[in-house]
Amino acid sequence: MGDFSILFQHLANGISLGSLYALIAIGYTMVYGILRLINFAHGDIFMLGVYITFYGILYTPIPWWLVFLIAPTITGFIGLLLEKIAYKPLREAPRTTILISAIGASFFLQNLGIVIFGGRPRAFPVPRILNRVIKLGGVSINVVAFIIPTVTVLLLVGLNYFINKTKTGMAMRALAKDYETASLMGIDVNKIISITFFLGSFLAAVGGIMWGARYPQLMPLMGTMPGLKSFIAAVIGGIGNITGAVIGGFILGLGEIMLVALLPRLTGYRDAFAFVLLIIILLVKPSGIMGDKITEKV
């Protein structure tokens, strides 16, 4: 019985971590699908989302639930702005160039974070409603562990509707399928790319808020690791594919938690797990679980 409750606890942890990876991974995968760009700064956008929420709750009279809506919106606009400044001028440039710009943007945001927010870790103000522990048949679980997967599923359903049922969503899919042809068909490329960045950053910020509720320690460099790992999740699932990103996120989240749970001796290697998984996937099936076959264009 004891074993079962512990296993259940691990599962709950793994699922909520996986949901967070999935939310961040969607941003990577959508941008990659359209622009073929690893948005290195995505993890730092996630960090900004958490900090904006932090300041919103502590320094404005706005109620916390409203901050939880406003902060991702602001973050979404920052993501949109980032694209306009650092990526848009380079859209026709070689891919390496835009990748370097992305790395530069990532470091810029991190260090700007250190300058503005300070390098000292901060405690995320978790609203009391979310910060409760409930007992469930002998297993005590934080409410957040339930909220995270629920919110994630809701957002995914919404996103799925948006992408598959609306005109804008159709334009996004068309751009991802064939950029040149789609842009010849009268699709407003700039608008669609802006929307993509907005959505990706919005979701990352929502993920960030829940991350803060789960692991309430804020640092300007906190986005790097979740960012890299979520990208890996996107690659595992097949980059460019949203369902794949979610699957990859869950595989990674559950895998990490289970690694530590089942093989405690490897706890120190937890951060390496994702990268090992990445390299295996790249060697075995570079297109990922759900990805299309990548053809080399001449």
Binding site: I100, S101, G104, A105, F107, F108, N111, L112, I114
Partner: peptide, 13 residues
Amino acid sequence: PGMRMVVFSMILI
């Protein structure tokens, strides 16, 4: 420690 790297990352971009 941050301002310096802000400057450098801006230079890179």
